[in-house]
């Protein structure tokens, strides 16, 4: 087990390094010159050169990349003298447009994205997994047909369309819900809930539809397995056959999917946050893309990649407790 963990964590560090390298290289090659952006309206070529030198933008790629890497661990200082800007470790870069370190911007918005992700995950796990299981048990009945139909709708309707329709009906027409704002939980739990309930529902609906289809198919496949027949041949109660022998294998792939989906969402739900005007990481990413704020885009990309990779490693570790074949295989 220890060896398994060490191997996985070492692999994770390797992948992260590659992600940082490629991301940095892409933005280095593609992005407009930050010096020009900082320079502003009354710019002269001399001034641009000066800014470049100050920020180290005139140095070769590998030096800049190493500078960025070391910034992650020990922090970095942009410019010199009175104009110097400090970016403490772990420095993900500095937005010259907003005048904030990227990490600080990220921290301010992460709570909204995390709230959105956690609430939606609870909903979609419940609707998707329970709905899928029930549809499989009641295969061919009206419930199965209704649930499968709803799931088809869920994967077909783009979530921004659903978001706008819900907003129109629930907020504008019926006035049941407020227009979503990120109210902190501590300020007013009731308002917090009412404000988040619509984004949760919309986000969860799409995921729940995928999970419902996956769970239903997996459960039906598992029920056809020979070992389920063996369990029946032993004379086990149907409840036990179901719980012990069908459910665990059927839900294992759901764990994999969930780890990645959830980690991905923590890195921002761009569409939902934008449609509902929630100031989360996703909205920050989309704003930065519009304004071409390169350090922020890169920071968000890196953090999102980091979360997905960490999510994967957690899934791998959870897997070892679920599936003995993985556990023993790693030890051998």
């Amino acid at each position: 087990m220890v060896r398994f963990l060490v191997t996985r964590l070492a692999g994770m560090v390797g992948v992260l390094f590659l992600v940082v390298l490629f991301t940095y290289a892409i933005f280095f090659a593609l992005s407009p010159d930050p010096a020009v952006q900082i320079c502003g309206k009354n710019c002269t070529p001399e001034l641009i050169d000066q800014i470049r030198t100050n920020l180290g933008l005139d140095r070769p790629f590998y030096e800049q990349f190493l500078g960025f890497l070391s910034g992650l661990f020990v922090g970095t200082t942009y410019g010199t003298g009175a104009n110097a800007i400090d970016c403490a470790a772990p420095c993900l870069g500095y937005s010259f447009q907003t005048g904030q370190p990227v990490l600080e911007m990220f921290e301010q918005r992460f709570g909204v994205s995390a709230t959105l992700a956690v609430g939606a995950a609870v909903l979609w796990l419940f609707m998707g997994v329970a709905g899928g299981m029930l549809a499989a048990i009641k295969k061919g009945t009206w419930f199965d047909r209704a649930a499968t139909g709803a799931a088809l709708g869920g994967v077909s309707i783009p979530n921004y369309v659903l978001a706008l329709v819900l907003q129109y009906v629930l907020v504008v027409k019926l006035g049941w819900l407020p227009f979503p704002q990120a109210v902190p939980f501590g300020a007013d739990p009731g308002q917090w809930f009412l404000n988040f309930v619509m984004p949760w529902l919309v986000l969860a609906f799409t995921y729940a539809s995928m999970y419902q289809r996956l769970t239903r198919a997996n459960v039906l496949d598992t029920l056809d397995e020979n070992f389920v027949r063996t369990a029946r041949a032993k004379g086990l109660a149907p409840r036990l056959v179901w719980r012990r022998h069908a459910l665990r294998p059927a839900l294992t792939p759901v764990v994999t999917l969930f780890g990645m989906d959830f980690a991905g969402l923590l890195g921002g739900a761009i569409i939902i946050e934008t449609v509902f005007g929630l100031n989360g990481v996703g909205k920050m990413a989309s704003d930065s893309i519009t304004k071409n704020d390169q350090p922020v885009i890169m920071g968000v990309t890196l953090v999102a990649a980091f979360l997905v990779i960490v999510g994967n490693v957690i899934v791998d570790i959870v897997y070892t407790t679920i599936d003995p074949r993985v556990r023993i295989g790693a030890r051998a």
Partner: peptide, 15 residues
């Protein structure tokens, strides 16, 4: 009691 043709798939891999 009954035993089946393919003992690998007839045993539950998780237990």
């Amino acid at each position: 009691a009954m035993i089946f043709q393919d003992p690998l798939s007839s045993l539950n891999p998780y237990y």
